[in-house]
Amino acid sequence: MSLTNRAGTEPGRTTDSYTPDEMMTVAAARSLPDGAVCFVGIGAPSTAANLARATHSPRLVLVYESGTIGAKPAWLPLSIGDGELADTADSVVSVPEIFNYWLQAGRIDVGFLGAAQIDRLANLNTTVIGDYDDPEVRLPGAGGAPEISASCRQVIVMMRHSRRSFVDRLDFRTSVGFGDGPSDRRRLGLTGGGPSVVITDLGLLHPDPRSCELTLTHLHPGVVLDQVVEATGWPLAVSADLRTTDPPTAFELDHLRRLAAARQ
């Protein structure tokens, strides 16, 4: 994909080009309100959460599954258990405690997940591509994702948009978004609210309030609708009020690039 967008040139906007991944990360950071308690996975979600903390959400509480609560890393950690996270945390708890007392008990506002595959009801696969017993690609597996999906008040999904990842049928359901339909989360006893938005490198998808089906609501600047339809493995629902995401500001890009440069 050779999308290099150009942002507007008005004051306060960058005149630099930015990558689709930078747009995705900035959009994800914007979705984190100040003061929220956020369960963060490594990689893009960690970058987005730390960007939010560096910009509009200085009191964002970052919780990593290693048991570090309120981590304030000065650089982006490579793993969820880097020493920087423990050294800067408000509290460090054991793994049984982080999952049972903090996540399961409903103390987390926002969970952040990525996946290899997503379907139209925002169910996620991080387990295998192909048959479980004879996989084409063995992926890492569940980790904390099933319970993050189950218990956080809302879940933000971040992933690059492509036909390989936005699929009609998951090869394996590792984590439940909306299951088989609107009433499924309640039927399954999942206490959290489920996915609130899917943020990709092409745009934003929100679950339809009634059907829960992912609906394209925003295109990132420079992206056209056909691109997203083409990159989605099911007939994509599109909002009647399709909008364009605000491009990254110079302020956001500056902080994002500083974070990336400070990666240890």
């Binding site: 049984p96 399961q104 099933p146 394996f172 359901r173 590792t174 439940v176 499924d184 399954l188 999942l190």
Partner: peptide, 22 residues
């Protein structure tokens, strides 16, 4: 599973797994 083992219980209990392929 470790917590149950450490606690001398035959099984552990949690909210989880419902609706997943696991």
């Amino acid at each position: 599973r470790y917590v149950a083992g450490a606690s001398g219980l035959p099984f552990g209990v949690l909210r989880g797994y419902a609706g997943t392929g696991l």
